[in-house]
Design a protein around this nucleic acid. Sequence first.
RNA 1: GGGAGAGUGUCCCGAGUGGCAAAGGGGGAGGACUGUAAAUCCUCUGGCUACGCCUUCGUAGGUUCGAGUCCUACCUCUCCCA
Length: 418
Amino acid sequence: MTTYKSDFLNILSARGFIHQVSEPDVLDAKAAAGQITACIGYDCTAPSLHIGHLLPTMMLYWLQQSGHRPIALMGGGTTRVGDPSGKDESRKVLTAEVIEENLVSIRKTFSKFLKFENDGGNAIMANNADWLNSLNYIDFLRDVGRHFSVNRMLSFDSVKMRLERQHELSFLEFNYMILQAYDFVELNKRYDCSLQMGGSDQWGNIVNGIDLGRRMNSASLYALTAPLITTASGAKMGKTAAGAVWLNADLVSPYQYWQFWRNTEDGDVSRFLKLFTILPLDEIAKLSALQGAELNEAKKVLATEATALMHGREAAEEAAGTARKTFEEGTFSGSLPTIEVARATLEQGIGVLYAFAELTSLVSSNGDARRQIKAGGLKVNDVNVTDEKMVLTAKDLTVDGAIKLSLGKKKHVLLKPV
RNA sequence: GGGAGAGUGUCCCGAGUGGCAAAGGGGGAGGACUGUAAAUCCUCUGGCUACGCCUUCGUAGGUUCGAGUCCUACCUCUCCCA
């Protein structure tokens, strides 16, 4: 591991955030000498960030913690274009309204990690729509476009992949890298931002910005990218059956979020503790030394710490408690996901198929419910369902006044009469 | 505008060229084994009021006892030429 002079790079390096850095020595000296300003760009393609955004966001966190100034750049303008990097299909063009809604929804997430001015900090929230939307085409081509060589743009991976696989790459998307490069230069002008960070797939885009800055303003800009995180078994991180692991609590509850981290593979625990929690490294070292089944303790710490960072300490403890009761004590906690049913409906009796497929959506259809029953995957109050004609009534209410429906070992929903 | 090719089970990739919901893989789900892990093994992965019925191969028609497959028109995409 390289040793740096600046706290910032030392922390990132020690915790495993660094994949590539341009001119590491120069950047290090600059960060050691005084405050630097760095930015990370975020798409507004969805109403919430997901786990994949967490890594770059943690870099902004450490940046601020080590005395520098972070900029969260919202892609209100660039999202209207669409980044072709890493995608072999054109993205649907989003309307300005949707982008604006997404932007507002995403914004809240950053205040969990960064202190903005209204919160006594120095972090900046920028939106590239502020300068991109009003660009004049001809002026832009003359000022910025002339610095780009199409020959070189064609050689970038994001472009090459589309061409090689004979997929369409629209001129709109082809311009994305120019806009992102321009963003960097603009942030440099406005806020003296000299470093852009991002995932490893952003390297090409960021380097373009560095070149453009040098040509337009003789500015010295730097790039730092984080490694692409895959799980120990090689899968891309952050996808579950239900889709992406979102950061907004209304899309993925703190309990589900906690579960996501709890189910981390053994081989990832140490790495994830360093990347996704802010625990001191010596403590992480201790946790990582645990072997075999004891590693589960480390996973719980990982889950609770990561959840606390995102959803607050209280929600994290509650999720941990719910998990403990559900998995270790065999009882259940009222904070499991709950579906309410009218008491009268329950009095009349509810078919199991209906309960699982319609009420709780644990399974996707009656047919799916039947299959799961056959496979022994459905449980009512921890007892396997064997008869698909079984009817749930008030008699099935436990002492806690609810019926616990389970799919497999991990997914539980409470049915509560009201 | 001219020429060539592609669109299949609504998660993805992909066989299928007149006859059974349509091979195979990935991904996913459940079970077994475990530690709420990984690996491995087994099962499943269109819908329903279910020994039957309905819906599905880009869209709309047509030929046929029968169409993913043949014909016609159209849509979308890719490549080459202009």
